[in-house]
Design a protein around this nucleic acid. Structure first.
Length: 337
DNA sequence: TGCATTTGACCGTA
DNA sequence: TACGGTCAAATGCA
């Protein structure tokens, strides 16, 4: 693909992002205005009714205007959507993945190693060590943030890194599943002490365990002393999720993971798989089973509305909406198509 | 001696 | 170019 095409796509994506953001802001404004205005409007209408007769059927001008604004946004987004469906993911989206790596292992390592040739102070690695950094970075939905008093859990982790993070007192530690070399388990976690309460750990779990370790005698929940589950971006939404979770856990004490908040986290992943990334998103690290688990996790059945409560989490927005079973099926199909 | 951890280098992304 | 995530050599430990 040439750079022109990439540029066009990049610009298009930015336009769409802005439109989506505008759409969401307009929606919020509509809610605010309708809430405020309905009171005033109701008073005015009551006055009119009591004064000069009935005005029933007169449209609320605020609602009318907001409907026009939203309609305009929606039309624009739809046009772009028809132009390039990949670039648009509204209003309920699961972030796709992308591949920014050096490609397959047989490729020349020049693009992997030669990218940064600048820092002469840095120790150069020996010949044949050139595969460092050859990983794909992708957005993955299986990202859960929990807070706990202990970073321990029932899985066996191997620490592979530690990093000072900007504006934080404590370093972040990086762990991967001990069984990654033997079973290819892709689960990783990051542990960082909380600034406010150093006795608390913020643990970010990325991916699910696919290993079948013999010492794994417990159900696949993590961690066992978890206290708070957080959305990547919106704690408020997480509390909503948590409320649903608590209810669910009582009803379904079986196998479903207790980790519910799922965000579109951005992680790096080693270039071990050979498949294309879109396939990997649905079948690789996010297998069909995994994906269904994500949906299980993100959807809470609302017994009053008879709808699924769907938590949308993306890098730029977060909103909740209701979708029915048919919409759920079609979404599933479209994401994995 | 083998496995786990530490730590600086390296890399991709924003 | 800064930052965060990962690699892998060096080191520690049982």
């Amino acid at each position: 693909m040439d750079s022109n095409s990439n540029n066009t796509k990049s610009i298009k994506r930015k336009v769409v992002d802005q439109l989506v953001e505008g759409y969401e802001f307009a929606t919020q404004l509509q809610l605010l205005l309708s809430h405020q205005h309905s009171n005033q409007y109701h008073i005015d209408q009551t006055r009119l009714v009591s004064g000069s007769g009935s005005v029933s059927g007169v449209p609320d001008p605020v609602d009318e205007l907001m409907a026009k604004i939203l309609g305009s946004f929606h039309k624009t987004i739809s046009v772009l959507d028809s132009f390039d469906p990949v670039a648009v993911s509204v209003p309920i989206s699961v972030e796709g993945s992308w591949n920014a790596s050096c490609g397959d292992d047989s490729a020349t390592p020049a693009s992997c190693n030669g990218g940064d040739s600048g820092d002469s102070k840095k120790k150069r690695l020996g010949v044949g060590k050139g595969k460092r950094g050859c990983y794909t970075r992708k957005k993955r939905s299986h990202t859960r943030i929990v807070e706990a008093r202990s970073s321990e859990d029932r899985y066996a982790w191997r620490k592979y890194g530690q990093k000072e993070i900007l504006n934080t007192t404590f370093p972040r530690s990086y762990f991967r599943c001990t069984h990654k070399p033997t079973q290819g388990c892709k689960a990783t976690k990051q542990v960082q002490k909380k600034e406010q309460d150093p006795e608390m750990f913020q643990i970010t779990y990325i991916g699910y365990h696919t290993c079948t370790a013999t010492d794994q005698t417990h159900t696949k929940t993590e961690p066992f002393d978890q206290e708070i589950i957080m959305d990547l971006e919106k704690t408020l939404a997480a509390s909503t999720v948590q409320n649903h979770v608590n209810a669910m856990v009582q009803e379904q004490e079986n196998n479903i993971s207790s980790v519910i908040a799922v965000g579109a986290g951005m992680v790096k992943e080693e270039e071990n798989n050979n498949g294309d990334q879109s396939k990997d998103y649905c079948e690789g690290s996010s297998t069909g089973e995994d994906l269904s688990l994500v949906w299980q996790e993100t959807m809470m059945f609302d017994d009053h509305q008879n709808n699924y409560y769907c938590g949308e989490i993306s890098t730029t927005s977060h909103q909740f909406g209701f979708i029915d079973n048919d919409q759920l099926s079609s979404l599933f199909d479209s994401y994995c198509a």
